[in-house]
């Protein structure tokens, strides 16, 4: 099965939030009481019941011009997904489309993925004691449909298709846009399955890591300590066995009256 990519072109996004709504609708996510805090962005951040949201950001340059940036924030579906790496139960898994999906039944609410994610995406729901995040509408794409956010997008800022085609399209678009435009997502964490075409440099955007990667802590833990533990424990077991065979038990018996071997 070919890997799929959701392409998000910020140069065509109008911040209408049809995607944000469609996500809630398809995934039957309830709304929560919010308040206006001086921005259009609401809910203020990703939540266990808000798997994606549009971030609104104003940017003023020196000469008085203003830009209004919109960014759809949701799971990036990394190829080297730190969350999958750390998930103890296998609840987070890679689908045949390359996306990162969640088997809710398996989730044990350990929250390890939350601190592992370089994009700060997974959210914990204390009511169900499980985490929640975008699964690229696995239930839809597995039936040949596009994700609900893509379906709802009126301007074509969102599109969905085969990996190579989407990457090519993203680069073509960036070429067309020129300036600071760039493709974000194909050069790190093994390539993401949500790809951005950004009109500004990544560093400009709020809450967007400039060079995301699987955290060193996860690598140390999963790539070093985990196999080492196995190696060490196995080595010790094997060593003890060989020791017992070659050296035999230490002779602690003596000739005193209270003698007698251990292990009665």
């Amino acid at each position: 099965m070919a890997e799929k990519i959701k392409l998000y072109d910020t140069s065509k996004c109008t911040g209408c939030r049809a995607c944000q709504l469609a996500c809630k609708q398809w995934n039957a996510l309830p709304a929560g009481q919010t308040y206006n805090t001086g921005t259009y962005q609401n809910p203020p951040d990703l939540q266990s019941n808000t798997w994606m949201l549009i971030r609104f950001q104003e940017m003023s340059n020196g000469n008085g011009d203003v830009k209004w940036l919109f960014r759809k924030d949701a799971c990036m579906h990394c190829t080297d997904a730190a969350c999958i790496k750390v998930c103890p139960s296998g609840a987070l898994f890679r689908t045949k489309y390359g996306s990162v999906a969640l088997d809710k039944d398996k989730c044990i609410g350990c929250k390890e993925c939350i601190s592992a994610c370089p994009f700060d995406v997974p959210r914990y729901d204390p009511v169900t004691d499980k985490i929640a995040k975008c699964d690229l509408c696995f239930s839809r794409i597995d039936r040949g449909m596009e994700p609900s956010c893509v379906k709802a997008c009126p301007t074509g800022a969102l599109s969905f298709g085969d990996k190579d085609e989407m990457i090519a399209r993203a680069h073509a678009r960036v070429k067309e846009l020129g300036g600071d435009a760039n493709v974000y997502g194909d050069q790190f964490v093994g390539g993401t399955h949500m790809l951005y075409v950004l009109t500004e440099k990544p560093s400009v955007y709020d809450e967007l890591p400039e060079r995301p990667r699987v955290p060193l802590t996860v690598i140390a833990w999963k790539d070093w300590f985990k196999p080492l533990t196995l190696l060490a424990a196995g080595g010790v077991l094997a060593g003890s066995f060989i020791h017992y065979l070659t050296h035999g038990p230490k002779d602690t018996s003596g000739d005193d009256q209270a003698g007698g071997e251990g292990g009665e």
Partner: peptide, 9 residues
Amino acid sequence: TIGVPGSAR
């Protein structure tokens, strides 16, 4: 245990 008999005691 078996490595140093008498220890377990």
